[in-house]
Design a protein around this nucleic acid. Sequence first.
DNA 1: GTTGAAAAGGCCGAACC
DNA 2: GGTTCGGCCTTTTCAAC
Lengths: 155, 155
Amino acid sequence: MHLDDTDLKLLALIQSDDSISVDLMAKRVGLSKTPCWRRLQKLEKAGYIKRHVALLDADKLELGVSVFVQIKTNRHDASWASEFANIIAEFPEIVEFYRMAGEYDYLMRVLVKDIPAYDHFYKRLISATALTDVTSNFAMEQIKYTTELPLPLNK
Amino acid sequence: MHLDDTDLKLLALIQSDDSISVDLMAKRVGLSKTPCWRRLQKLEKAGYIKRHVALLDADKLELGVSVFVQIKTNRHDASWASEFANIIAEFPEIVEFYRMAGEYDYLMRVLVKDIPAYDHFYKRLISATALTDVTSNFAMEQIKYTTELPLPLNK
DNA sequence: GTTGAAAAGGCCGAACC
DNA sequence: GGTTCGGCCTTTTCAAC
């Protein structure tokens, strides 16, 4: 499926603000209501739009501490990897999880209230998985965070 | 402001799926329509809900490669830090940016299409900032990614 | 907290150019 | 791609309990 410039504009718009009406979106991208709505349906069905969510204020909810955890392992078989992925899915504190190239095998971002909360998480994690090499790096400040993908627009 | 259990349930609900009607949300959290709507307004105004967005499919849009960039600097004054933050805000490829404790001063996640695209980004970044020590770590696979905060619910 | 209802506006699709 | 026109659903507010 091919996306034209208007499709990309629409995607850029809704990934930035999904609370406006179809009518307003239409005006912003230079369409009228019906064709705009048809494009949104098409993009939704084609899977370009994964979900509609509300983003909450982590600081207000006392979840302002991000910890980046680097992990090395000596297990590299597929069955262990999928079992590991299942365990990670069960921890809501793990908000991101990547298989890495380079020195460390995995990298995760863990969201917690404070250092004691991280310690509590850490103990539960290592007892659930038996990992060899785990290095924790604390973020002091989140300076930027966005869910907006860098779409090829402003060229 | 104090949040009760119903507030937390509502927040958990809308950060997972913001496309359902107020009526349905009300049923899910055990309220009727009107008080549910009032709570949502209250949470919005109090700033617990930051924004409503659509999450797009990064793979489909050819932005499937995450690169974690660790940065060291010898500048530690406030004016340089704020100038640096402004530059980072201008790069849409930088989707996350943290000031870190430990060996490296900053960590960023950069979203690009492929390695050449990262190289292009990298050149623009260092020409815009003049950084001393920059280490790039490539993610081979994104195993988990969620915008949902780990709210204290399922206790 | 509840129900019920009414006004306003958005959604959705058909039918047309 | 554009318009217009409905019926329907949701949102939002209000009264009454």
